[in-house]
Amino acid sequence: MKPATYTALSDWLYARLGLSLGHDKAYLVESRVAPVLRRHGIASMDVLGAQLRRGLPEDVAREICGAMTANESAFFRDIRPYAHFARVALPALLRARAGTRRLRIWNAAAGGGQEAYSIAMLLHEARAALEGWAVEIVATDIGDEVLRRAREGVYTHFEIQRGLPARLMVRHFIRQEDRWQASPELRAAIRFGAFNLMHDPRPLGVFDAVFCRYALVQLEAASREAISGRIAQILAGDGFLYLGEGEVARPALFAPVPGEKGIFTHAPRVPGGVAPSLRP
């Protein structure tokens, strides 16, 4: 890849995703983007660079974004956030929403789908308490290919074993030779869709919990701050934000939950949160 192509691609990724690559990530970009080029018959990175200057077809653009933001993931990654959600957030939200009996959760960087399926399995465990409730899990990511895989919910022998308790694996997944697919019921519990975190999330509505784990860590500070600000706009006033361990939400808007890593609520007395009564 010519240096000019790398520069053009870096600039484009920054504008589109807020992704800050630095000068030494040519190998990373090539290795991640190569499968997209093969799928679309684009001969080389430099040919892609030329297309970039003329304007990329949207499907190619989205696949490149998906490839560049894809993360290694696991079911119930880090465990603690999910334990907090099940033991603290969910009971609190069940009490607070007893009037509307409506619960909305946003998985804002769905990746391979493990996070969304983990949330769906937790809610299935709580199904007795959620009887008669309207529960919605919205899982978004930027790339079509990433979303297709997440929606399909098929995992390899190794992927299915990362973080997923065997009890839940045999209950919610169906073995197909050496792969495992999420059951139709589990897949039906999640609404997958395309969304770029750089855009205004308010059309998605208000959410009671947002899982946006390990998406911000790849971005430079200004983008992280901007995304924090956007999440604050759609998180209910008493909602919970789950970031990756070590990721920090904008301190003016969010307060960390004491004793937890990467879990936040709205900062007290700061405008930005949406009161539950204002829910659409």
Binding site: F158, R167, M169, V170, R175
Partner: peptide, 23 residues
């Protein structure tokens, strides 16, 4: 890696189950 075998091991008192190969 048969789900019925895995479920039977859990039913028999295993706390967890790992399918070989693993890392």
């Amino acid at each position: 890696n048969d789900p019925a075998r895995i479920a039977a091991a859990l039913e028999a008192g295993a706390n967890e189950y790992v399918m070989k190969p693993f890392d």
